[in-house]
Amino acid sequence: MSSDVRFTDFKSDKQPTWCPGCGDFGTMNGMMKALANTGNDPDNTFVVAGIGCSGKIGTYMHSYALHGVHGRALPVGTGVKLANPDLEVMVAGGDGDGYSIGAGHFVHAVRRNVDLTYVVMDNRIYGLTKGQASPTSREDFETSTTPEGPQQPPVNPLALALASGATFIAQSFSSDALRHAEIIEQAIEHDGFGFVNVFSPCVTFNDVDTYDYFRDSLVDLKEADHDPHDYDDAKEKILEGDKEYMGVLWQDEESVPYHQTHGVTEDMTDIPDGAADGSMDLVREFY
């Protein structure tokens, strides 16, 4: 890894087609900065993206990348990391991708605690399909498919992560460039599954969860005397209904990543050009 990598090295020459003002710009910039700041370069980085506006991120960043099937980015990222633990793996998607169609994978990816970073660009709306309710939309949020609002409580992704045994839970805001990059950086450096829910406002279809809303309501944990290693404190803040926080809510200092618990440390890509030594023992076992 070269030390002179700049965050712009992670930028591809494709111009984003996100709407002007979209929160995803800020989310992506923070990811690129955090990758550069943690000593990574495009050739050792693998970005996996889901489907939706957020899923386009793989195209706008420069690295090894796979833009996959809707909701399945986490299993792909897990496979990449296990096959080659030397790679820096970053999985990115939206709230629909991660908490609706991919919710099942989210729970199990959290449980596995593979050493990768999961960034969810949470805009509380389906943007690419032009404005339908998402799993994090408010109960009374009126959309084309929910004229009276979803009338169901939104998913609390931080609580879902906590209940699944997460070792790192953070929340961030795309427009606070400095803090956002800092939080992603902490997620990258975490030994295990680094989960960051990023408020990434949709300026076109969501007139409730706006930049102004988040600016006014988000409480920065830096200023809230919060100890991220205190589980009970984290639990209380995560389950609190009337406040939303920015920063690292929970980090398990004892976290042991999957590759250590399961002894998966070898690069699996390097194989001989015939059956490996000792293969005949496999046959003898059947005597």
Partner: peptide
């Protein structure tokens, strides 16, 4: 032989896990 088996949460995940490992070059 330096390999690993993952029991996935479902087949949707299983094929995507395998796909990820293959993208990595395994």
């Amino acid at each position: 032989f330096g390999g690993h088996v993952v029991q996935a949460e479902d087949e949707l995940s299983a094929i995507n896990l395998a796909l990820g490992a293959a993208r990595a070059g395994a």
